[in-house]
């Protein structure tokens, strides 16, 4: 079958899709976006987290046909060219990346959290990221990265015109 959708704002067509394929497979193997990761392919690890119509989902649990005419956002869409999103930059700066396999999913999930909560408490951060497994870091530097990204975004808002808060 053919699946037509948008990825990171761009119209996209995937051809010869077998009905059993997941959105994750289509992204990774058919449209050249392997940033979303295949760590468990059963919805337990969060490594494949993408936005589907603005809501974070596990791409491995979404059947390819379900994204027809819908909007998908992946880790590849977070940066603006060479300018990293504050969440991405904070993960690099805080030492939250080791092997990096969990990172794309954590970035999308954190991006969503900071869109909803500008000053999340530690408990809120842990709750929001509890569906994203990381095996390398013990999460301490991930906590630091989320706090850092939240602080930097708050600073940026402080200098932005009133009413620009999202």
């Amino acid at each position: 079958m053919r699946v037509t959708f948008t990825v990171n704002g761009r119209p996209t067509e995937a051809d010869d899709v077998w009905e059993g394929e997941s959105l994750l497979y289509v992204l990774r193997e058919r449209v050249g976006l392997p940033g979303s990761k295949n760590a468990c392919e059963q919805g337990e690890c969060g490594s494949c987290t993408v936005y589907l119509d603005g809501a974070p989902v596990c791409a491995c649990l979404v059947a390819a046909g379900q994204v027809q005419d819908r909007a998908v956002g992946t880790v590849e869409g977070l940066a603006d060219g060479d300018t990293l999103d504050p969440v991405q930059q904070a993960f690099v700066d805080a030492g939250a990346v080791q092997c990096g396999f969990c990172t794309p999913g954590l970035l999308v999930q954190t991006h969503d959290l900071l869109n909803r909560a500008h000053h999340p408490s530690d408990a809120e951060i842990r709750e929001a990221l509890s569906g994203n497994l990381c095996r390398c870091t013990g999460y301490e530097k991930i906590m630091d990265a989320v706090r850092l990204a939240a602080a930097r975004k708050a600073d940026a808002r402080g200098t932005a015109p009133a009413g620009s808060e999202g």
Partner: peptide, 17 residues
């Protein structure tokens, strides 16, 4: 910072899979 850090946060790092 890690030499591979930017690639990893952009989703551009080439893992074996």
């Amino acid at each position: 910072p890690r030499p591979d850090g930017i690639l990893k946060v952009k989703g551009d790092f080439a893992y074996a899979s």
